[in-house]
Amino acid sequence: MAFEFNSDKFIETPETTTKLDQLIKLLNQYPYAHAQIVGHTDSIGTKHYNKKLSEKRALSVLEILKKKGVDTNRLSVIAKGESQPIATNMYAPGRAKNRRVELIILSFQYTVDE
């Protein structure tokens, strides 16, 4: 899920909306599933500022999930700032890729009724 430079506003596109809807469906299908919402930034700005911005980004996605009915007690927010880039920060396209939130399913319990 992507964000504009210096913003915690989630960019809604057909692709991001589809991915978010898939996650919501999975979390609703498995009510014991736990997930992490991990915020990231590019490397422009101070480490402290980027850490706070990445937290705000993760919290904005948490709020979207909450509004769509996901139990937020099963979700945790982690701020990584600029520490885990997936692309180079030397050029604008790479920085844009690094401004993101990742949703990680930690565990879930699946029970088969007899």
Rank of each mutant, 00 (worst) to 15 (best):
L20P: 01
T13N: 09
I86N: 12
S83D: 14
L59G: 07
T72Q: 15
T16V: 11
I78W: 00
Y30M: 10
K56D: 12
E82S: 02
G81C: 09
Y91I: 07
Q84A: 08
Y30P: 02
A79P: 05
Y32F: 15
D21V: 04
G39K: 02
N89C: 09
V61K: 01
Q22S: 10
E55K: 10
M90C: 02
E63D: 15
P93I: 05
G81M: 02
K52S: 11
S76T: 13
G69C: 10
Y32N: 15
R95W: 03
T18D: 13
G69R: 06
K52I: 08
A35K: 06
K47Y: 02
G94W: 01
T18A: 14
V38L: 12
A87I: 05
S60W: 03
K51E: 12
Y49K: 00
A96W: 01
E12G: 06
N89F: 00
V61S: 10
V77S: 11
D42T: 01
D71H: 08
T88V: 03
K47V: 10
D71K: 11
G45C: 11
T16R: 05
L53G: 03
I64N: 08
D42V: 00
N50Q: 13
R74H: 14
I64Q: 09
K47G: 06
E82L: 00
A96G: 03
I64V: 14
L26Y: 14
Y49N: 01
T17F: 09
H48L: 13
N28Y: 08
A87P: 04
R74Y: 11
K80S: 13
H48C: 03
S83C: 05
K97C: 07
I44A: 01
L27T: 10
V61C: 09
K51F: 11
V70Q: 03
T46K: 03
T72P: 06
Y49R: 00
Y49I: 00
L59W: 00
V70G: 11
I78R: 00
Y30H: 15
N73T: 14
K68V: 10
L53D: 00
K25F: 11
N89L: 03
L59F: 09
T41F: 02
P31S: 15
E63V: 06
T13M: 11
Y49M: 02
N28A: 14
T88F: 05
D21S: 13
V61T: 09
E82I: 00
S83V: 07
E15Y: 11
D21I: 04
T46E: 06
A58K: 03
V38D: 00
S76H: 01
R57I: 02
P93Y: 05
A35R: 05
A35M: 12
Q22L: 12
K51Q: 15
I78Q: 02
M90L: 10
A92Q: 13
S83R: 07
K25M: 08
H48W: 07
Y30Q: 08
N73D: 15
L23Y: 04
Q36G: 10
